[in-house]
Design a binder for these strands. Structure first.
Length: 827
RNA sequence: GCCGAAGUGGCGGAAUUGGUAGACGCGCUGGAUUCAAAAUCCAGUGGAGGUUAACUUCGUAAGGGUUCGAGUCCCUUCUUCGGCACCA
């Protein structure tokens, strides 16, 4: 489109950069290191989509500026190559996931190179490579040794129509992502990582991170720490006693029944014969409810009486034990003490089943009213024996002390966070390196036997069963301890495991001896800037933090937070404002735009068109704005009509430095400052706008000043500075212009332009004059003018006088450099 | 339902964090150039009024408040988007 020959320029510079090894990082040199990371991509095939470009281009521009500021930038790229889509694709087409994945990676590598980013491909990491997943397995074994990897029976998402287990992220509102059938819960023995052991540290470290507030907030909520107490209830006519967790021990006198989760393992034990049938029926009904129904908050509460009774430890009252699905087996102890007067859910349940409601807290002020809903605020104790009259907040502390004294309870902290279920009944993932021996039980695969390789010769059938189960030899093995015939674990690991440590592998991806070199990563990590989508706000980022902490505790590294500074990019939506998706037919393919405008323009447009952290609908009607702008810069620097001759002339005129030059110089320094700060903060749109302004100023100077009076030396310097400012955003074009301006070395080896505060300052400033807060005039005063001088100018300014005459001046507010506000009133 | 983010011209978006709202662009209008068009260059461009000048007035989702001064802070309401779903 534009006059600049972007095709040749792109090819020329990508080749030159490659030849010179411009972006090869010296990993040994750790002084002023900067580890710049984007979330690696899933090799989905097809083409890089807008989202990739939007993630990678701007981040690379940021890093280019940092490089010019003297940082030793490490910018690696890799692939999160395991995962379900490749396996589903295999089931559909018969193409082996390994083949299709490796082909996709090749394609994507080629496309990624078109962005023209500073990736050093010598440090590529591919998670499905046995040299990588060997170490994923090794890490599993280390966690296993620490007791941080374990197996337990747990409910999984089961799709009755696909006959398969689904990962959480494949469940959409309780239905199967593929077939739309309702998901049910099924119990299976699964592998877990004990992330809950790190709950406190994961929570407490958050405040110290330079991350978006909303992401920190989301992680805190996800961990969901709550403080309260554990209270023990004796079961009538039973040796058992049950513990409940409560955040409201102050309501203990108001407990009128207990509720157990239907899946509670001890439920059967307490149910007397005469209630068995009914309880069983309810359990079965509840378990087979789809997730959507069970999770619905608006549905009516259901439940049955178990026939068992417990004793309230504070008043000796006998209370019934019910079972209901509003109690979750996975949280707390799977059993709650119900206080209908002070908990809305309990209130609804009690109303439904005509259970007693006893109020024990009353508002501090206002009269007592009959409850029509639960009263959940603090207040004054009533109906609580000797504690009546005490404030509930105080009683909360007191009752815990009492429980500890008498031995029926204690202080307790609980978490919403659950252990990380890493088992997948899938083929295309890293096999879990465990052998099940009939004699020795669970036996870890010895480290020297790693990796446990995925067999290639497997059959993909749409049964939902993992091909590893049916493989003739993979499963059969011998016990590494006793040599008996044994079976390999056939579950593979969740792909989040692969991606929870890849950033540790990047600095040293060829290492055959260990997953990473401790000294090296202690110097290169934590990652200095991590950029990725906000959809990873919780899971990936939490898992990676956990992994880093666990490895630190085992002594493999010295830091515990992997990502010092994090930024999210927004999402570029389809033209229709919806998320791009093939099914909606609103996807936008970058390729056509790159062919038409070139990679620089495309990348820069993405940066210019949106607030980076927000994104928005795709609209190509303004991409020509950037095309036009680059064109203007190009013509300024190359056309004789403008400044084309400056790059060729040997002798440049240095005419007197007048007001025009001073003004342009001022603009230059303001621009340098603005672009530097905006880019640092990922405000690419305003950074680019400022370069546009500078460009406009240069045009104006050239246009308005007669050619033989132009200060050519100065003008050339200004243009060169602008080229450097442009370089991070339009690397190919800038590099070309930089060369044409007579420079031998790459623009990216050039120091980033510096600004000089003195040269930014203007001698005179324009200030607004307000009368009663409305702008009525303007004054021009010297930048150093004192308040008196400003006031004098303001009071005599044009248009201002008529608002003052005949009025009394009540107040004068003078903000030097900004405005004057004169408050007047009628006499 | 809870938590979080956000609502600014015809459009994308700015606004030094309480100090001249609308930077920079897109689009549009007019002019220059051209046989003509495209491209380019120049100028104008929130609404209403006004002798199309000066200037006045309204204006940042709606309503109220604090302040000399509010897009920015506080309260209420509405809308949109994202996250979580009975967490005891």
């Amino acid at each position: 489109m534009g006059v600049f020959p972007f095709k040749e320029i792109e090819k020329k510079w990508q080749n030159k950069w490659e030849e010179k090894g411009l972006y090869k990082v010296d990993i040994k040199k750790t002084e002023k290191k900067l580890y710049n990371l984007v979330m690696f991509s899933y090799p989905s095939g097809a083409t890089l989509h807008i989202g990739h470009w939007y993630n990678y281009g701007p981040n690379d521009s940021w890093a280019r500026m940092k490089r010019m500021q003297g940082y030793n930038v490490f910018e690696p790229m890799g692939f999160d190559a395991f995962g379900l889509p490749a396996e589903n694709y295999a089931v559909k087409t018969g193409k082996h996931p390994q083949d299709s994945t490796l082909i996709n990676i090749k394609t994507m590598e080629t496309q990624l190179k078109r962005i023209g980013a500073m990736y050093d491909w010598d440090y590529e990491v591919v998670t499905c490579d046995p040299d990588y997943y060997k170490w994923t397995q090794w890490i599993f074994l280390q966690l296993y040794r620490q007791g941080l990897a374990y197996r337990k029976n747990a409910p999984v998402n089961w799709c009755p129509s696909c006959q398969t287990v689904l990962a959480n992220e494949q469940v959409l509102d309780g239905t199967c992502e593929r077939c739309g059938a309702g998901i049910i819960r099924k119990n299976l023995t699964q592998w877990f990582f004990k992330i809950t052991a790190y709950a406190d540290r994961l929570l407490e470290n958050i405040d110290g991170l330079d991350w978006p507030e909303r992401t920190k907030h989301a992680q805190k909520n996800w961990i969901g720490r709550s403080h309260g107490a554990e209270i023990r209830f004796e079961i009538k006519n039973h040796n058992e006693s049950f513990t409940v967790f409560t955040t409201r021990p102050d309501t203990l006198f108001g407990v009128t029944y207990l509720v157990m989760a239907p899946e509670h393992p001890l439920l059967d034990e307490i149910v007397p014969e005469n209630r068995r049938h009914e309880v069983k029926a309810y359990q079965e009904w509840a378990v087979n409810q789809s997730e959507i129904d069970r999770l619905s908050v608006t549905k009516e509460k259901t439940g049955v009486f178990t026939g068992a009774y417990a004793v309230n430890p504070v008043n000796g009252e006998t209370i019934p034990i019910w079972v209901s699905d509003y109690v979750l087996v996975t949280y707390g102890t799977g059993l709650v003490m119900a206080v209908p007067a002070h908990d809305q859910r309990d209130y609804e349940f009690a109303t439904q089943f005509a259970l007693p409601v006893r109020q024990v807290i009353t508002p501090l002020q206002g009269e007592e009213r009959p409850l029509t809903e639960a009263y959940t605020e603090p207040g004054r104790m009533i109906n609580s024996g000797e504690f009546d009259g005490m404030e509930s907040e105080e009683f909360k502390e007191r009752i815990i002390e009492l429980a500890e004294e008498k031995g029926f309870g204690q202080k307790k902290t609980n978490y919403r966070l659950r252990d990380w279920l890493i088992s997948r009944q899938r083929y295309w993932g890293a096999p879990i390196p465990i052998i099940h021996c009939p004699v020795c039980g669970e036996v870890p695969v010895p480290e020297e036997k790693l990796p446990v390789k995925l067999p290639y010769d497997v059959v993909f059938e749409p049964t939902g069963e993992s091909p590893l189960v049916k493989h003739p030899t993979f499963r059969l093995t011998s016990c590494p301890v006793c040599g008996a015939e044994a079976e390999r674990e056939v579950d593979t690991m969740d792909t989040f495991v692969d991606s929870s440590w890849y950033f540790l592998r990047y600095p040293d991806p060829q290492n055959k001896e260990q997953p990473f070199d401790k000294d090296l990563i202690n110097q290169w990590l934590p990652v200095d800037k991590y950029v990725g989508g906000p959809e990873h706000a919780v899971m990936h980022l939490l898992y990676a933090r956990f992994m880093t902490m666990a490895l630190k505790d085992m002594g493999y590294l010295d830091f515990e937070e992997p990502f010092k500074s994090l930024r999210h990019q927004g999402i570029v939506l389809g033209r229709d404002g919806n998320k791009m998706s093939k099914s909606k037919g609103n996807t936008v393919i970058p390729d056509d735009y790159i062919t038409e405008y070139g990679t620089d323009v495309f990348r820069m447009y993405l940066m210019f068109a949106y607030d980076y952290a927000v994104g928005g609908p795709w609209d190509d009607s303004t991409i020509k704005a950037i095309d036009r702008f680059i064109d203007r810069v190009w013509r300024l620097a190359t056309e004789e009509e403008w400044c084309g001759l400056l790059f060729e002339k040997k002798e440049l005129i240095s005419s007197p430095f007048g007001e025009a030059e001073k003004s342009l110089e001022r603009k230059l320094h303001l621009t340098i400052k603005g672009v530097t700060e905006d880019t640092e903060d990922f405000h690419f749109n305003t950074a680019i706008a400022k370069i546009m302004e500078l460009n406009n100023e240069i045009y104006k100077y050239v246009r308005e000043k007669k050619r033989d009076t132009q200060n050519e030396l100065f003008l050339k310097e200004v243009i060169q500075s602008m080229i450097l400012l442009l370089a991070p955003f339009a690397p190919h074009v800038a590099e070309e212009l930089w060369e044409r301006s007579g420079k031998k070395d790459s623009a990216f080896n050039e120091p980033w332009p510096r600004y000089d505060e003195d040269k930014m300052a203007s001698e005179t400033v324009t200030m607004a004059v307000q009368i009663n807060g409305k702008v009525r005039g303007e004054i021009r005063v010297s930048a150093e003018a004192g308040k008196e001088e400003i006031e004098k100018a303001a009071l005599t300014a044009e248009n201002v006088t008529r608002y003052i005459s005949g009025k009394t001046i009540v107040k004068k507010i003078i903000v030097p450099g900004r405005l004057v506000n004169i408050v007047v009133k009628d006499k």
